[in-house]
C-alpha cells in the first residue's frame, strides 16, 4: 500500500508542474486562440536561464529563480511582439505554423549552447534526507516544488479573478469586439498573455529541472506532454488545466509503476498521454472542463 501512496505523491508532484505549464498554454489559447506549439521550448529556456544565473553567474537560487521569471516574462513578450504581432488578422493556421517555426528556432538556439548536448543538475540547496511519513517519502526538492507551484497557481487565479489586468484578459477571451469598445488594448493583452505564459513556463521549467536534472530531451518530452494535459482539461479552461495536469501526472506514475516490466511493456508513461489524447478527441473533444461550442462540422 505504501508503494501506491508513493506513486500518488510523485504523481501529484509531477502533475502540479504539468498544471503550471498547462496554465500558461491555456492562457495564450484563451486570449488569442493560438495553439502555442513552442511552449515546451519556453519551459526549457526558462530552466536553462535559471541554471545559467545560478551556477555560471553565482547568484543565490532564490534570487536567480525570480530573475529568470522576469527575464522569461520579457522574452515571451518580445516573442509575441516580434513574431506574432504582425500576424494579427492573418488566418489562425498561419499563426500556429509560426509557433511551429518558433519551436524550431528556439530548439536551434538551445543546441548552440552547452545545454543542447550535456546534462546539468542544480546544486543541492535543500536538506538531502527525504521527509518520511508512514513509509511514504518525499524529497525536500519535490515538497518545495509543489508548494511553489501551488502558490503560483493560487496567485494566477487571484490575478484573473480580481486584478484589473486579469479581468481585461478574460474580457478579451470572451469577446474581442466588446472589450475593444470599452477601451481594452487587445495587442497589449495578447502581449501580456504571452508574457504571463512565459513566466509560468519558466517557473515550471525551473522546478522540473530541480527535481529531475537538466536534460534537453527530457524537458522537450515534458513540454510536449503539456498538449495531452490541456486537451484533457479542455483547451480554454484554466481550472481544467490544473485538474488535468494532476490527473496526467498520476496516470503517468501509475503507468510506470504498475505497467512497466509486466507483459513486456516498457516506457508506457511516455506514450499513454498521447493515447489518452486521441481517445479524448474522439469521445469527449472539449475535454473535462472546456466550453462546449455547439458546432459540429
Amino acid at each position: 500500500m505504501s508503494y501506491f501512496f508513493q506513486l500518488v505523491i510523485s504523481g501529484i508532484v509531477v502533475g502540479s508542474i504539468y498544471a503550471l505549464s498547462g496554465l500558461g498554454f491555456v492562457l495564450i489559447y484563451k486570449s488569442s486562440r493560438v495553439l502555442n506549439i513552442a511552449h515546451g521550448q519556453i519551459i526549457a529556456a526558462g530552466a536553462f536561464i535559471t541554471y545559467a544565473l545560478t551556477v555560471w553567474a553565482g547568484i543565490p537560487i532564490y534570487i536567480s529563480f525570480l530573475l529568470s521569471l522576469v527575464i522569461t516574462f520579457f522574452l515571451a513578450m518580445s516573442v509575441e511582439r516580434v513574431f506574432l504581432r504582425r500576424l494579427i488578422g492573418e488566418p489562425i493556421i498561419s499563426v500556429i505554423m509560426v509557433t511551429i517555426g518558433l519551436m524550431s528556432i528556439i530548439d536551434g538556439l538551445i543546441y548552440l549552447t552547452p545545454f543542447g548536448s550535456e546534462n546539468f543538475s542544480f546544486p543541492e540547496f535543500l536538506p538531502k534526507t527525504p521527509l518520511t511519513v508512514g513509509g511514504v517519502s518525499i524529497s525536500w526538492t519535490q515538497l518545495v516544488g509543489v508548494i511553489i507551484t501551488a502558490i503560483l497557481i493560487a496567485g494566477f487565479s487571484w490575478f484573473f479573478k480580481k486584478s484589473t489586468v486579469g479581468i481585461s484578459m478574460r474580457a478579451v477571451s470572451d469577446d474581442q469586439l466588446a472589450s475593444m469598445s470599452v477601451g481594452i488594448s487587445i495587442p497589449r493583452v495578447f502581449g501580456l498573455a504571452w508574457a504571463t505564459a512565459g513566466l509560468s513556463a519558466a517557473a515550471a521549467g525551473t522546478i522540473i529541472g530541480n527535481i529531475t536534472g537538466l536534460n534537453f530531451d527530457t524537458l522537450h518530452a515534458f513540454g510536449i506532454t503539456v498538449f495531452p494535459v490541456v486537451i484533457l482539461g479542455g483547451l480554454d479552461s484554466i481550472f481544467g488545466a490544473v485538474v488535468a495536469g494532476i490527473i496526467m501526472g498520476l496516470i503517468q506514475q501509475f503507468a510506470s509503476g504498475y505497467l512497466d516490466g509486466n507483459w513486456g511493456l516498457n516506457g508506457t508513461a511516455d506514450v499513454l498521454p498521447y493515447i489518452i489524447l486521441l481517445v479524448i478527441l474522439l469521445f469527449k473533444p472539449h475535454g473535462l472542463f472546456g466550453t462546449h461550442e455547439i458546432e459540429r462540422v
Partner: peptide, 22 residues
C-alpha cells in the same frame, strides 16, 4: 562547436518557416 550542424538545422528551418509566413 561539435554539434553545430544539429543546432543550425532546426535554426534555419525555423527561420525559413517564420520568415516565409511573415
Amino acid at each position: 562547436a561539435g554539434n553545430l550542424a544539429t543546432a543550425l538545422r532546426p535554426l534555419s528551418f525555423g527561420l525559413v518557416i517564420v520568415l516565409f509566413l511573415m
